[in-house]
Simulated assay, not measured.
Amino acid sequence: MQTLTDLLKDPTIIKIMRTTLWIVIIGILIMFLRKLVKRRIADIAYRYKIQKMIEMVGIFLIVLIILLSFTLDNLKDYTVIIGLFTAGIAFTLQELILSVAGSFYIFALRVYKPGDRIEINGIKGDVIDINSMYTTIMEMGEWVSSDNYSGRIVKISNAFVFKGPIKNYSMDFPFVWDELNIPITYESDVELAKKIILHVAIDHLSDYIENSKETWKEMVKRYYIEDATLDPTIAIKLTDNWIELNLRYITDYKRRRVTKHELFENIEKSILETKGKVSIASSTLQLLKFPLMDVRMKS
């Protein structure tokens, strides 16, 4: 009992107990506020932001309390202690510090937000969660073609926002340019083929074109960027086997695969209605017969 009493009188033990008590109180307060926000705020996006803000403020307070508890009493050695402590923390917890700093950076500068489609560290997908340490992504691609979910959920350290490029498909300009190639035979009516493809593209993409033009005007005002052609365009390429018509168009970043499928389907139907004036080309192989040979056998 005497040893326990002496231990409880130790200033260092008192500091640790007091600091631990404050950490527990802050942790309980964070959980209470998160539950309160969940009950009171109906809007999912706004509720998510408030909950993450509470979490980050709580972590900041905990770190601040730990620093103040072990440095404030010894003001003479304050510089030395802080220097050694900072050096040790920076060396051993550099990834953790970068991750926490990355989360503040992501929220403060709107690098991306939940619901955005991004590509970071070679991984592409939709952001489904951002916390103080990790960004959680519903992965796309890998063994699955085009913009389809693979089914895997990937957690990426927030520190990666300082280490490489972040490709955001939906921030400021939620449209992407895409292309499809239609091969036609050399015997086809090229001008008719161009008219068919452009008509289908404009008819199918009219809503995207109008919306993208309004958004692009805002982009030109905000960034140092040249004006771009948003209407569908066609470029012709001559190959050894066929004439290739390259259609370039703009579409919603979430409907790239569906748009390409619908364009191909409608273009094929329109070409079939020309009754041979335009024909889709394919690779062909021509077999040449060998010349007749007269073979005589001598006995």
Rank of each mutant, 00 (worst) to 15 (best):
G141A: 06
I97L: 15
D147N: 14
F107T: 13
E95M: 01
M140I: 01
I137D: 04
W143S: 09
T86F: 13
V111H: 01
A87L: 14
I118A: 11
V111I: 15
V161R: 01
F91S: 02
V161C: 03
S99F: 04
D172W: 05
M140L: 10
D147F: 12
F160R: 08
K167E: 11
Y134M: 13
Y169W: 15
I106N: 09
E95K: 12
V127M: 05
A108P: 00
R110G: 10
A101R: 07
G83S: 12
S103G: 09
N131P: 05
Y105A: 13
L109I: 05
I130F: 05
G115Y: 13
G151D: 06
E142A: 13
Y134Q: 04
K155D: 11
I123C: 01
S103V: 04
S103D: 08
I120C: 01
Y105E: 14
Q94Y: 09
I156S: 07
R152A: 11
V161G: 02
I118H: 08
N168V: 08
I89P: 00
F85W: 04
R110A: 12
V100Q: 07
I153V: 15
L109H: 12
I106W: 09
A90I: 01
I166S: 03
L93C: 03
G102H: 05
D129M: 02
S145N: 07
A90F: 08
S170T: 15
N158C: 08
D172I: 04
N158W: 11
G122R: 06
T92F: 15
I106R: 11
G83Q: 00
A87E: 01
T92P: 00
T86W: 10
L98P: 00
A90E: 07
I97S: 06
I120F: 02
D172P: 00
V154Q: 09
Q94P: 00
M171T: 06
I153W: 02
L109C: 08
S145W: 01
G115P: 11
S146T: 09
S157F: 01
M140K: 13
F107Q: 14
G83T: 15
G102Y: 08
F173D: 03
K113E: 15
K167Q: 10
G125F: 03
F160K: 11
V111E: 08
D126I: 14
L93P: 00
P165Y: 06
Y112S: 10
M171L: 14
Y149K: 13
F104T: 03
L84G: 14
E142K: 13
S99D: 11
L84H: 02
A159Y: 05
G88S: 04
E119K: 14
W143Q: 05
T92R: 10
G151E: 08
S157I: 00
F85T: 13
T136N: 02
N168H: 10
F91Q: 00
M171P: 00
S146W: 08
R117M: 14
I128A: 08
Y169H: 10
N131F: 09
A87K: 03
